[in-house]
Design a binder for these strands. Structure first.
Lengths: 189, 189, 189, 189
DNA sequence: CATGAATGAGCTTTCATTCAT
DNA sequence: CATGAATGAAAGCTCATTCAT
């Protein structure tokens, strides 16, 4: 049943986030999922093969946050502010999952899958830039496809610096947020 | 003797880059280093504890590339172009090491050390922005300390997308390079 | 299944007795038990943790010998003679196990368990003295609980001197036996 | 120099008593002795070979206590009381060493040496009984050589039960002391 | 004599994987 | 489909021992 598969995915996310990919044993996952050891192998051949499912989940969460936070009919400044704060919010709330994905993807052969898993975010960002360009809100010499990747990298790397590597104060976060918003606005205009 | 320690570090970099962190056994490292199994443990308690040394090495390599590629007395456009191409070059030539560091640091307790290991690059970028501001080449409302991190994140994340996750053509790289240079110039001005 | 656990206990007794606790490897035990290396760890965390089980076995053997050798309705002299010879017999036949228990218990944290494992023997000896006192066969000023321990220590220490530390002749053993029987009779009367 | 050998013996006693024979590494001993790793092997071929030296030390301590506590010209009752309390005292103060000796001797080939190391105590006890017999204080049918061993076993086993296996109250110790003294007097008379 | 870095055999322990139920 | 006891290959790690200095 898909029920069990879903249980495995959820338990794997939980365990990976909690104790890291390498320190998570199949036995941890099945214990958390409340299933038998052998059952795991009916659905996945290894713990690493659960990673793409987790990545899909993470991207879905990102897209949910993006869609619920940003109104594409707003003006550019408002949209940039909303975009940055959405990425910050999701990075904070799912930081263990992102850290884990970095670790897991970077080391395995699944690395190349990242591209296709991430495409909903790239696609959305492409639309975002495209519309802004049609409205004349951004520089004419921007290539929307290329810049969508640059922009996502910019915002996410800043968010990760803050939430994964440091443990900064609220003021610190707010200041960095503002700096990034100005940086982005200036970059696009 | 530090001779052996150095040998271990070099062998570890080589093995990690070649077969990934998790697939590297202590026995691989000592074989590559030409030392006995027990000798490894005289210097490091685990393979993960070699990571900070590797990170130091990587940052040193980055700084070498930066220093040899960028003349701070050049004008801003030239400096940005040189900076981006330096980061691209180093990311390409050491991509296995960077992928490995992401994986290794993200999963371990050493994550917080990243900040201090990376500080030479942050410091350099701070000087870079400070001087450009004094010369009136960049926006007045930039906070140089904050933007140094944003800028490093921006350039590195773009380089990593290219070299770690994709395997793009030369033209593709050149195009993305130009897009990023324009993006950065626009962001700072 | 308890089947495997029992096999492990038996194999451990055999190996410990044969080659000593410290010279026995887990691999020896599992080979003797006819199970896989990993199976051992399903039941015991270390070879030392099998010791209490072995101690239980040893005390059971002692009690079997005692019960089958001594008729509590006999007169005191007969009972003392039977008691001493029972302890001598069991000490001889299980001397490796006793030597091993001394070594193992004395060095580990399991030392305090000894008390409770040994209690069947203490309890039996208490009854023995109690009944003899009721029959007026022993001194009135004996405290049966205290003396039960003293008596067991007396007989066992003599038996161990003979069988564990020395390798005496039969005549020697017989002579020491008689000396101890007289000593004990005199002590109790 | 004998200086170093003495240092090794003292450090070994300390470490064996503190962490047990099997958990003591040569490196612990040399660290405690303040000498180099290799130096140990100039004096002893293994940690077990230090055991007889420790046993000698223990017996010397016993004999010191005995000689300073017992006046052979006293009457029998006084001498028994002094003897038992001397053994109790030394067992308490050196209990770790005795526990260790039991473990160490019982498991090694050095077991047979115990006999000769212990002989000063056996010899003294033989004299003790001999003199008492000459004075007519003890049973005529006692064999002094045989009973010396029985008597030492009796007193030591009781002391060990108290100090090694239990952790009894002072009252408990006093009561057991009295019971043993009465037992011994009755046994010898 | 004394040192202590280096050695590597040999042990413990783990844990992904299987398969009879 | 689901189970979980059993497996054993494969790794980690230790520590007695050596030997060049």
């Amino acid at each position: 049943m898909l029920d069990k598969k879903q249980k495995i995915i959820e338990a794997t996310i939980e365990q990976f986030a909690f104790k890291g990919v390498e320190n998570t044993k199949i036995s941890d996952i099945v214990k958390a999922a409340g299933i038998a050891q052998g059952t795991f192998y009916l659905y996945f051949p290894s713990k690493f093969s659960v990673m793409p499912e987790i990545a899909k989940y993470a991207v879905e969460e990102i897209m949910k946050e993006i869609h619920s936070s940003i109104d594409l009919s707003d003006d550019l400044d408002k949209k940039i502010e909303d975009l940055v704060s959405a990425v910050f919010r999701i990075t904070e709330s799912k930081k263990e999952i992102f850290a884990m994905l970095y670790a897991g993807l970077a080391q395995s052969e699944h690395l190349k899958q990242w591209e296709s898993i991430y495409s909903p975010f790239y696609d959305w960002m492409y639309i975002f830039l495209q519309q802004s360009m049609e409205k004349g809100e951004i520089r004419k010499n921007i290539n929307c496809a290329r810049t969508s990747r640059i922009l996502i990298g910019l915002i996410e790397s800043t968010a990760e610096q803050l939430y994964l590597y440091d443990s900064p104060s609220n003021d610190e976060i707010k200041a960095q947020y503002k700096e990034l918003v100005e940086f982005t606005k200036s970059a696009l205009k």
